Simulated assay, not measured.
Amino acid sequence: MADIKIDTNKCDNCGDCTDVCPMEVLILKEGELTINEPDECSYCETCVDLCPNECITID
């Protein structure tokens, strides 16, 4: 299981990561970035690379 963390102090909920997540693990729910089905994460780290605020980590 992927250990996905979002630093909510840095995240501005821009949605860039949700647009590129091939597994739809990251979603915007009620305007806030949310982790949906973390077991589905493919560890591609595209969201990590794309995030302008460096608020997503995957271990």
Score class of each variant (00 low, 15 high):
M1D: 05
I6L: 11
L26R: 01
P38C: 01
G15L: 01
A2P: 15
C51M: 05
I58R: 02
C17I: 11
T46M: 11
C47W: 11
C47I: 10
P22I: 05
L50N: 01
G31W: 15
I6G: 09
K29C: 06
M23N: 09
N36I: 05
G31K: 15
C17P: 08
V20H: 04
I56T: 10
D49G: 10
C17A: 05
A2F: 12
D59M: 09
D7N: 14
C55Q: 02
V48N: 04
C14R: 06
T57E: 15
E40T: 05
E54D: 11
C11D: 06
K10Q: 07
K29Q: 14
P22A: 01
G15R: 04
G15C: 01
N36R: 15
N9G: 00
T46I: 12
P52Q: 04
T8Q: 13
C47R: 02
P38L: 03
L50K: 09
T57I: 14
T18Q: 08
V25K: 10
E24T: 14
P52F: 05
C51S: 03
L26Q: 05
L26W: 12
E40N: 09
I58S: 01
L28K: 00
N9R: 09
A2N: 13
T34R: 04
L33M: 09
N53F: 14
E37K: 14
D39K: 07
E45V: 01
D7T: 06
E30I: 05
I27R: 12
G15W: 08
C47L: 04
D39Y: 08
T57V: 14
C21H: 06
C44F: 02
Y43P: 00
L26T: 07
D19W: 13
E32G: 00
A2S: 15
C11E: 03
C11R: 09
M23E: 11
I6F: 13
D7F: 11
N13Y: 10
I56C: 03
P22K: 00
N53I: 02
C17H: 07
T34L: 08
P22D: 06
I58W: 01
M23K: 15
T46G: 03
C44S: 05
M23F: 09
E37P: 01
